[in-house]
């Protein structure tokens, strides 16, 4: 069932992309193939594969129960929020919050998760920014550093 659903969605997606890809045209022909043929070839093959899966989706099916689906969605939202706040809040705060929330989702207890979150934010910042020279955003702390 899910495989069929995926295959149907993917087929529509391929069709949409193919319409888009049809418009890829170079103002001047640099090579005999051009930018359009290769993506279209891939989309055609993918569409063929999707059709095959629509007809023969295979036997095994995994069941989704609602509680684990809810946890998955919560986890995805946490990750998304972490990614979106990464720059504006800065690495230390967003990591402390993100790792705290993820720790709770992974059945950690409240206090240890909070401690590990704060520690991770500070220690990883030190490791990457100072030792490995990967520039990380300071976010809210930027005002302190400037002044």
């Amino acid at each position: 069932m899910y495989v069929r659903l995926f295959a149907a969605t993917w087929l529509l997606f391929c069709a949409g992309l193919a319409v888009l890809a049809w418009g890829f045209q170079a103002p001047f022909a640099y090579d005999p193939v051009g930018p359009r043929a290769y993506p279209l070839l891939l989309l055609t093959l993918m569409a063929a594969g999707s059709l095959w899966l629509l007809v023969k989706p295979g036997l095994r099916e995994q069941k989704l129960d609602s509680s684990s689906a809810l946890r998955s969605v919560l986890c995805m939202l946490t990750l998304l929020a972490y990614a979106l706040l990464f720059e504006s809040l800065g690495f230390i705060i967003s990591t402390a919050l993100g790792t705290f929330a993820l720790g709770l989702l992974f059945t950690g207890r409240l206090l240890p998760c909070a401690i590990s979150g704060v520690l991770m934010g500070v220690l990883l910042y030190g490791l990457f920014d100072y030792l490995l020279d990967v520039p990380l955003p300071l976010g809210l702390f930027e005002a302190f550093v400037e002044s």
């Binding site: 990464f86 690495f91 790792t99 720790g103």
Partner: peptide, 22 residues
């Protein structure tokens, strides 16, 4: 334990990706 490991993987993944283009 997972509740330390998974957040750590996530944070390091974020750093790894952020390091490419910021």
């Amino acid at each position: 334990p997972n509740w330390i490991l998974v957040p750590a993987i996530t944070a390091i993944s974020m750093v790894g990706v952020y390091a490419v283009h910021s």
